[in-house]
Amino acid sequence: MEIKPRILIAKPGLDGHDRGAKVVARALRDAGMEVIYTGLRQTPEMIVESALQEDADAIGLSILSGAHLPLVARIMELLTENEMDDVPVFLGGIIPPDDIPTLQGMGVAGIFGPGASTQEIVHFINDTLAAAQGDRAV
């Protein structure tokens, strides 16, 4: 049996545009990952609960509503509460450059705006998970 990365893809908040999330989900699937796709309009609580039950290795969020700061803050808080701070979170959508340092400060591992290639995201996940595995092995 081979170990497959399990990646949760979710859309928190109220915007209804899920094409980006689907494109990323599909790209990760084609890269041999197991993608748990949870769909639109997820609350931070739903996302963290799903990640916990699915034992996700990483969480990808797509946000275009502009509400990324409060949503991400709440998700990171819930991850800490559930002792899941070791699960890397990456972000896609419309994120103003000024907010990037704040999000990184909250612990977001990767941010991919419009124009990022799916290859870039696949590499990012593989590298991040490999590094995490290395840390655990040490």
Binding site: E2, K4, A25, L28, R29, E34, I36, Y37
Partner: peptide, 9 residues
């Protein structure tokens, strides 16, 4: 590819 899209949730 061995990948999967799990969408039942």
């Amino acid at each position: 590819t061995g990948g999967a899209l799990l969408g039942d949730r």
